[in-house]
Design a binder for these strands. Structure first.
Lengths: 294, 294
DNA sequence: TCGAATTATGCTCGTTATGAGTATAATTCG
DNA sequence: CGAATTATACTCATAACGAGCATAATTCGA
C-alpha cells in the first residue's frame, strides 16, 4: 500500500487566490513517499521542487485520505497525505490557477457570486424535494446551513461541506451517480478538488487566529493590499476602517518610511509585518471565562 | 512501508480527563491499516474495538507522522495516522489513565501545577544559559512564551510545544540525549506521548469553537458538572457565574424538569445538550471585520 | 486650473461581549 | 439553629465590534 504526498500551494496574485497545478489544471503536485526521505515534509518538498521548480516556505499538514480504489479493483489503494503551503508567485511560473475557477460559488465578494449561490440553492432544493419527506427535511436543513440561506449567514469556512453536498446531490462531474446538470466550476482528477476544498477551508479558518496571511504578502504593502488579500482568501468583503483598526491595534504591522508608488487617490503608507509576533500568542480571545491567575 | 492507525480515546470521569491505554499505560490502541478496511476510520474502529472492547463515537483525525525508524535500522519505517476520539467510560473498563499522569505540568487548576511550572522553568533556564548567547536568548524567549512566564499568560493550547521544548532540553526520558534529571511525568513507548500531547492540544482548542465538550458529558448534567469537565480538559479554573452566562446565552443547553440528586448545598437544575445546534454555526465570533451583506 | 473621482486616515457612537464581583436563595450537616 | 455549601440573579466597568461620518491628499479629465 504506497503512500503519496500531495501539496496545495497557495499564493495571492493581483487580489486573486491562486493554486499551483500541473497537467492543465487537473492535478496537484504529488509523489510517493520514499524510504530515503528524512521526513514526510522533506519528501514533499523534494517532489514539489522537482515537479514545479518552486521551493516551499510555510507548510502545514492538512489531512490524510485513503483514496478511493482507482478504477481497477486491485487492492493497491494508496494513502494520501495532503499539505497546505503558503507562498508567493515568482515571475515566469505557470500552472497557477484561480481557485475560484474550481469553486466559483466560494467567491462571495461580488453580486455574481451571490447570484450563483441562489441558483445552486434552487438545484439543491430540487434534490431535497426528490427525497422522501423526513430525509428531504434533513437535506433542506443541511442546505440552508451550509449555504447560509434563510437568514443564516454565509460561513466561509464550510468549503468542504458545500462541495460534499454538491457531490452527494450529483451536481459535480466527480459524483458517482452524476445528475444530468452539473454546477459551474472546473473539476480535477481523483480527489483533487476535495483536497483543494480542505485547503481553502483550513486557510480561511487559520487567518482568523494566526497571522499566516503575511506569508502571502510581499515585504511591504499597504493596508488596502492586505485587506484585498484577506478578502480574496475569505471570499468576503470587509469594512475598510474596521479592518485597519483591527490590524493596527494588534501590533501586527509597523509603518515603514515609504509610501506606495503610482497610486490613484491619496498615496498610502507602506507597512511591514512584525516578524517578532510570529511565535507570539494567538490573535483572538479565549472564548472561555477564565479566572485571572492569583 | 506499513501504515498504522492509532487512537487517543478521551473521557472525563470524576472531573479528571482520562485516556485509554494498554500495556500498563505505555501504549495507545493501534493496528495496521489493512486492505480489507473500507476506510481509515473503519479500520481504526475495528482495531480499537478488538483491543479494548470500546466502541467509538465522535472521531476526528489528528496528525500523520512518519515515526522515527525503530531501534533497528531497516527502512521499515511506518506511517502513523493518529485519531482523537471522545467518549464516556463504561463501568468495568480498565486501562483508563489520568492524562495529567503523563503531563503533570498541564494541570494549572491547582497551586501545585503552578509550582511545578516554576520548577520546570528553572531547569529550562539552566538549559538556555548553557547555550551560546544568541541561541540562549532565543531559547529564553521560547520558554517564556510556551510556559507563560514574565507576565505572558499561560496558553493551554501549547501542550505540544511545551513537550517538544522539554524533549529538546533533554528533560524527558524519551529525549535522545537525555540530560541527567528529568521532569516528573510518566512516559510512553515510541511517539505515544507526542501523540497524546497533540490530542490534548486539539481538544483544548476545539472546545473553544465547537460544542464537542458535550461528547464527554452524560445525557443530563448540572452547569457545575459541565464547568468541571471543561476545566479538567483545559487545565484551567474558570469564573463560575460567567461560565454559566456563556453557556446559557448561546442556547447550547436547555433545562430539564429535574434537579440533581444527592447534592450538598442548594440542588442544581439539570440541563440537556440541545443536539439541534450540532450542525449549526460555530460558537465564537468571526474575528474579521466583515461588511454586512446587502 | 478647477472640480470630480478616488483612496487614505482619523474619529465617534451605539451595541455587545467580557472580566470581576455583590447579593440572595436553597440546601445539607453538625 | 447556625455554619458551610452550592446555585442563581444582577450590576458595573471596560474592551471589542459594527457602522458610519468627516476630512485629507492625491490623480485626472474638462
Amino acid at each position: 500500500m504506497p503512500t503519496k504526498l500531495i501539496a496545495v500551494l497557495i499564493a495571492v496574485s493581483e487580489d486573486r487566490p491562486m493554486v499551483l497545478t500541473l497537467e492543465g489544471g487537473r492535478v496537484l503536485p504529488s509523489g510517493p513517499l520514499e524510504a530515503g526521505h528524512r521526513s514526510l515534509q522533506t519528501g514533499l518538498r523534494l517532489w514539489v521542487e522537482r515537479q514545479t521548480g518552486h521551493a516551499l516556505g510555510h507548510v502545514e499538514q492538512l489531512y490524510t485520505f485513503a483514496d478511493a480504489p482507482d478504477t481497477d479493483a486491485t487492492d493497491e489503494r494508496s494513502v494520501l497525505i495532503s499539505y497546505l503551503a503558503l507562498t508567493r508567485i515568482h515571475s515566469g511560473e505557470h500552472g497557477w490557477r484561480n481557485w475560484y475557477d474550481y469553486f466559483p460559488w466560494e467567491d462571495q465578494t461580488t453580486p455574481d457570486g451571490r447570484a450563483l449561490v441562489a441558483r445552486i440553492a434552487a438545484q439543491l432544493g430540487d434534490w431535497a424535494r426528490a427525497a422522501p419527506p423526513a430525509l428531504g427535511a434533513a437535506r433542506h436543513q443541511r442546505i440552508a446551513l451550509t449555504f447560509g440561506l434563510e437568514g443564516l449567514g454565509w460561513d466561509d469556512e464550510l468549503v468542504l461541506q458545500r462541495y460534499e453536498l454538491l457531490w452527494e446531490a450529483g451536481l459535480v462531474p466527480e459524483s458517482s451517480p452524476p445528475a444530468g446538470a452539473t454546477v459551474r466550476g472546473q473539476d480535477m482528477a481523483g480527489d483533487g478538488r476535495r483536497i483543494l476544498a480542505t485547503a481553502m477551508a483550513r486557510l480561511r479558518a487559520k487567518i482568523r487566529y494566526r497571522p499566516v496571511i503575511f506569508e502571502l504578502m510581499p515585504d511591504s504593502f499597504t493596508l488596502l493590499q492586505l485587506q484585498r488579500t484577506v478578502e480574496a482568501v475569505a471570499g468576503q468583503a470587509m469594512h475598510k476602517q474596521n479592518f485597519r483598526r483591527l490590524i493596527t491595534q494588534q501590533d501586527l504591522v509597523e509603518e515603514t518610511a515609504d509610501l506606495a508608488p503610482d497610486t490613484r487617490g491619496r498615496p498610502a503608507r507602506l507597512f511591514r509585518f512584525r516578524r517578532e509576533v510570529i511565535g507570539a500568542r494567538r490573535i483572538a480571545g479565549s472564548k472561555l471565562p477564565l479566572t485571572r491567575p492569583v
